[in-house]
Amino acid sequence: MSRVKAIGIDVGSTTAKIVAVDENGEMIWRYIEPTDPRIEDQVDRFLEKLKEELSISDEELKKIPIVATGYGRKLVHQAKKKLTEITCHAKGVYKSLGHGGTLVDIGGQDSKVIVISNDGKVVDFTMNDKCAAGTGRFLENTAMRMKVPLDKMGELALSAPEEVKISSVCTVFAESEIISMIAHGVAVEPILKGLHRGLISRIVAMIRSVGLTPPLMLSGGVVKNPAVRKMLEEATGQKVILPEYPQFMGAYGAALIALESTKSEN
């Protein structure tokens, strides 16, 4: 009999993740890859991989509850329940860290600030407005424009002794601003630092709009970028706490909710 008692799947705009948990809600398996436009096929592949690596039979898999989250959640037909990232992230982070606080999750499409109570409930949340300047996509796009590898971006930004202020907060205009700066001979590092500053100030504005309940926590793919963390700490004066698997918090939370549903059914 497999140890896997529940599965969570998070289909984000940039990456898709899957997490399996045991009966105590411990994360025993996880997997991530870039989101495939054919989401149904990708989820099938994920489940195949899970079966193979943890030697689970088809029969067994059918009995394991699945909860889906993320932008593509509605296309995960294998899921018995579909919930938003807000609920799932809060759940996952709370279980991982064991306390509430203010969670910042910077995703590709959406950034969110979630206030979690001491008993793990969502008490408040806010998301970036229509423009993409407060999201991971903003950094990605501009890194591409500047031909800087994504994983080097944070380091380069931090290495800059000074920064330039990027005037426009909209992604499209920010790009054209950057092009003209490069044309004027401005070095890459200060521009990168300015870009990060732009992103961080958007995030800080969101935090202020709901009010900061410490501690401050960070999740999402963007945590791999050291500049984001450091600059967020500087701007808020709060130490930023990371869960062990920051990218998997949505999927993990989804798995935990799936697990709870089996318990409540029993």
């Binding site: 205009f173 054209s176 601003e177």
Partner: peptide, 10 residues
């Protein structure tokens, strides 16, 4: 203009 931003090149 946005008085808080540097003047955009445009």
């Amino acid at each position: 203009v946005d008085i808080n931003d540097p003047l955009p090149d445009q």
